[in-house]
Design a protein around this nucleic acid. Structure first.
Length: 422
RNA sequence: GUGGGUGUAGCUCAGUCGGCUAGAGCACCAGAUUGUGGCUCUGGGGGCCGUGGGUUCAAGUCCCAUCACCCACCCCA
């Protein structure tokens, strides 16, 4: 039986890797312009970190983690997300006693044992940013502006940004009580999923898609009306800042993000038309996280984006195609006796910083030209009997088909010159 | 974890009621054009028909199982 990539994983091969580089470059550049620096944390961590950081009631922790024991019986887990690791690193290296806010970004693979689907994999890639140490609402806005800017730079102008505030532990608990009181009389009318949500996390009943549930709880009290004074002011400032920055968004009472660590601002960004998994990014404020992981009481805000979903969107919505040629110059020899000279010149071109290639399959002269064409070469250098006898190279422009004779000492500069103006 | 769909060449897919040596297009290689690419034409290499079992004189085709992928639920990025 042939061995294949495990379920939910896949290979990224050329020329696809070029598309990844293109997206990754935009992500890194944008983050750095906004003042975020890259962090790289381990791919696996102690299981306890995610249990505490993500929350034991979440789907991620209860059923989606890749957990294993190492040879010393430590329980380790392949990271399902990177925010908890960032908080751990921040604490471990006492970053909080340095210059604040600490503004980090990351990019890399995450792992969740989930049923694969369009835009959903078991090993997938996230880009994300985290800003620790400030509870300033304008930092919330900065992070959202960065998220939107990334989409704009990828040509994804058609997005839906939803925001909400989930308050602080105090006002959220008060609201939870009210909501439970509101739902309890109509509990029996809810779908079976909502029956369990009602027990575990009543707020999640709000974003159920079932019509019957919507009707059953119609007129429910909203989080927005129950925010405490500070939380309400914080949320108002975020919205005001987004408006001032001309960012379109919509308040969404039903946006209740699943992870336990969120406080105050929560947001999610969708791109219509890429399937059921249309959330390309989501995040929020997590003021309780650092303390929960054993550090000081330090606020934080961040988001994560799914790179597979971004690529899906770039393909299906933005319709962008990125394919640069493999090479610029191809050396064609008309007799295999010229292999040594060809390789010598090839290396000289390469050491001069020029992407150059030759044939290694024993192709005929004609086939070498076909090959050059497939590689996207803009220039071909032809070495045949006449060239060897008289000591020059034939330089062919693949587009115009013009050919000129160039001496050995001029060849590098001539190639450079032609590539620069082409 | 639940429901539905699909597995045939590297890719996209035909393959009738179970019946001769399993096909096409694209891609790849070669030739036409022995010193020159894109177009065209000709030829060639490539298949455990996802895997395992069953029914049958006979299975790519029917049945069962299994695995994988796709779509949706769930959840999320």
């Amino acid at each position: 039986m042939q061995i294949k990539a495990p379920r939910g994983t896949y290979d990224i091969l050329p020329p696809d890797t070029g598309r990844w580089h293109y997206v990754e470059k935009i992500l890194r550049e944008t983050a750095e312009i906004f003042g975020y620096q890259e962090v790289r944390t381990p791919i696996f961590e102690h299981t306890e970190l995610f249990e505490r950081g993500v929350g034991t009631s979440t789907d991620i922790v209860t059923k989606e983690m890749y957990t294993f024991k190492d040879k010393s019986s430590r329980s380790l887990t392949l990271r399902p997300e990177n925010t908890a690791s960032c908080a751990r690193a921040l604490i471990e290296h006492s970053i909080y006693s340095g210059i604040l806010p600490a503004k980090w970004y990351y990019i890399g693979p995450m792992f969740r044992y989930d049923r694969p689907q369009t835009g959903r994999y078991r090993q997938f890639h996230q880009f994300g940013v985290e800003a620790f140490g400030s509870n300033n609402p304008y930092l919330d806005a900065e992070v959202i502006i960065l998220l939107v800017e990334v989409l704009k730079r990828l040509g994804l102008n058609d997005y839906e940004l939803h925001i909400n505030s989930v308050g602080c532990p105090q006002c959220r608990e008060l609201y939870r009580q009210k909501l439970i009181a509101y739902i309890t009389p109509v509990k029996d009318k809810l779908c079976s999923d909502c029956q369990t949500r009602y027990e575990q996390n009543p707020l999640r009943v709000l974003d159920c898609k079932e019509d019957t549930c919507h009707r059953a709880i119609a007129g429910y009290p909203t989080l927005l009306e129950h925010l405490c004074h500070d939380c309400a002011r914080h949320y108002a400032a975020v919205k005001e800042a987004l408006k001032a920055s001309h960012i379109d968004f919509q308040h969404d009472d039903n946006l209740v993000r699943g992870l336990d660590y969120y406080t105050n601002t929560a947001f999610e960004i969708h791109i219509p038309g890429i399937g059921a998994q249309s959330a390309v990014g989501g995040g929020g404020r997590y003021n309780g996280l650092v303390a929960e992981c054993g550090g000081p009481d330090l606020p934080g805000i961040g988001f994560a984006m799914g790179i597979e979903r971004l690529l899906l969107a770039v393909d299906t919505v933005a319709g962008r195609e990125i394919n640069a040629g493999n090479t610029d110059v191809f050396i064609s020899i008309m007799n295999d006796a010229y292999e040594p000279q060809a390789l010598e010149l090839l290396t000289r071109l390469r050491l001069a910083g020029i992407r150059a290639e030759k044939d290694y399959m024993g192709r005929s002269g004609r086939a070498q030209m076909k090959y050059a064409d497939k590689l996207g070469a803009r220039l071909a250098i032809i070495i045949g009997e006449e060239e060897i006898a008289q000591g020059f190279y034939t330089l062919r422009d693949m587009q115009s088909k013009e050919q000129v004779q160039i001496s050995d000492q001029d060849i590098i500069n001539s190639v450079k010159h032609r590539l620069a103006i082409a």
